[in-house]
Design a protein around this nucleic acid. Structure first.
Lengths: 128, 128
DNA sequence: TTGCTGTTATATATAAGATATAACAAATAC
DNA sequence: GTATTTGTTATATCTTATATATAACAGCAA
């Protein structure tokens, strides 16, 4: 588990943790069935409190990225809820693209950026 | 000024205010040189505190969407900093697309969504 | 003068984020 | 059996962010 936390960021630690794990799944560094480190282990590795990791795991479970097995602990388990995900993506993009639009970033600029990010995730995927 | 605040949202009021004004600029409902309502006026219209509006205006000024004229108050003034905006957009997209990727949302799905949002902003623009 | 700008200062209340310590039931390893 | 590890829950504490309230200030305009 390579986790990078920016302690000077205005984004909450547990939120950064969620983002990194989700990006790890997209990049196929984490696959369905893979166990996550225990809350105590990961907290110790990163140098943060156990409850901060626990909050991240709880959020990931509520959002459908993780399930908890009493025996094995937290395990990656993505449930593909495309409809809701599309709606949430739209909400987020509406604001991001507004900011981009104000700065004369073109539709093609955004498409290229999307393609580049998709290629990154897809290429990581093909290595498995 | 049509501002919609969701008081049940987990997003801060001043942050929602910033987003709405930026989306207003993208949609050309607000144009360069247009004055924003005074902090007291807008606070009164929405039913929130003056300082909450003031914080939003301050953030918008720091991010380069607004300038302050002692005589006229806050005025829309977008400075097109494309390089920084592209970087910020990339950071945001990397997380959003990871979430989408996990939910089997395709590259084409994202492109369509981007186009739809761009069309919305551009069509609003052409009405002016 | 009167009234309007944004701005600043101070104070207060609530909520969120992070930490610390402790305990619990369930499962595993010995 | 014991010991250890799992997620989970409960308390408590501290800091920061958010939002409100009241008040005052300098600059500008009618």
């Amino acid at each position: 588990m390579y986790i990078e936390i920016d302690f000077n960021s205005d984004e909450a630690i547990y939120s950064q943790l969620c983002d990194q794990i989700i990006m790890g799944i997209a990049a196929a560094r984490l696959n369905d069935g893979d166990p996550l480190p225990s809350v105590r282990q990961l907290a110790n590795d990163i140098g943060i409190n156990m409850h901060t990791v626990n909050k991240a795991y709880t959020v990931l479970r509520q959002q459908g990225y993780v399930k908890v097995d009493r025996r094995r602990g937290a395990v990656i388990s993505v449930d593909p809820d495309k409809a809701i995900a599309l709606e949430e993506l739209g909400e987020s993009l509406r604001v991001d693209i507004a900011r981009a639009f104000c700065r004369n970033i073109s539709r093609e600029d955004v498409h290229k950026l999307v393609d580049r990010i998709f290629d990154d995730y897809a290429s990581d995927h093909s290595k498995e």
